[in-house]
């Protein structure tokens, strides 16, 4: 699967109309390219429109200006053909289904034969072996996110979208999940967009970090991450990592950035 898919957000913008009739520019003019098999992280203050960008790529929102294409196709085509994987901050697991059945769900939605071996493999990959029959309400926050990531990957999607998947977790669990996500991603390089507000999560996981400014949303800075893969947690203690972390944090703290 390392061929991957290339994504282009071509000068996209998004306006929202408020209930009182005012127009709010959430995203002004963004051009972002994600290469085949590339992992791009999008960081920025809350309300900067980074989730809106991801939602446009997921065909959940339509851009007011510009065009989103994935290998030249509209993202709607992608979701229609069940080639998107997604994990949200709230895990969006169905409470009445077991872990196994939740991971199985994309097969059912796509009306494909359920590949039980694939499901078992993914459940093992996210470290939930033995919890197949458990219900989401019986799992911890971290475990629910693991299920949600397994579900995102089960159909071997061409594009993986991660919208603050670990945003609700505590710092220790979050770091652990970052290690596991990078291990899982290592197995099949999928073109990935990760939206986060954590600088070190972005640096540790991605090939390139994109910083967005606050309202109206624009791209402020892009940084290529020089570390090779697989990445060891040790990388987070290196001078280079700290230098990049400071650079990105500084970019986030510029006066124009805060929303």
């Amino acid at each position: 699967m390392s061929g991957g898919t290339s994504i282009l957000l071509d000068h996209v913008g998004k306006d929202f109309e408020m209930d009182d009739g005012r127009k709010v520019v959430a995203v002004e003019d963004v051009r972002l390219e994600i290469g085949a098999g590339e992992f791009v992280a999008l960081i920025g203050p809350s309300g900067c429109g980074k989730s809106t960008l991801l939602r446009m790529l997921a065909a959940l929102e339509q851009p007011s200006r510009g065009r989103v294409t994935v290998d030249g196709e509209a993202p709607e085509e992608l979701s229609r053909n069940h080639r998107l994987g997604v994990a949200f901050q709230d895990h969006a697991l169905l409470p009445w289904l077991s872990v196994e059945a939740n991971v199985e769900l994309p097969f059912r939605i796509a009306s494909r034969a359920v590949d039980h071996a694939r499901i078992a493999e993914l459940i093992a990959l996210v470290g939930l072996k033995g919890f197949e029959k458990a219900r989401p309400s019986q799992l911890s926050g971290g475990m629910r996110q693991r299920v949600s990531i397994a579900r995102a990957l089960v159909l071997r999607p061409d594009v993986l979208l991660l919208d603050e998947p670990f945003g609700a977790l505590d710092a220790v669990t979050r770091r652990q999940m970052n290690l596991e996500l990078q291990r899982i991603w290592q197995e099949q390089h999928i073109s990935t967009l990760l939206v986060t507000h954590s600088v070190d999560e972005a640096l540790f996981l991605s090939d390139r970090v994109v910083v967005m400014s606050g309202r109206p949303g624009n791209i402020l800075k892009e940084v290529s991450v020089p570390f090779g893969r697989p990445r060891d947690p040790e990388v987070m203690r290196s001078g280079e990592f700290h230098r990049l972390e400071d650079e990105l944090t500084e970019a986030l703290e510029q006066p124009g950035v805060a929303a």
Partner: peptide, 12 residues
Amino acid sequence: PPGSEDLFQVLG
């Protein structure tokens, strides 16, 4: 359930 509608749409 929260998020489920988005999920179903993304999954096509």
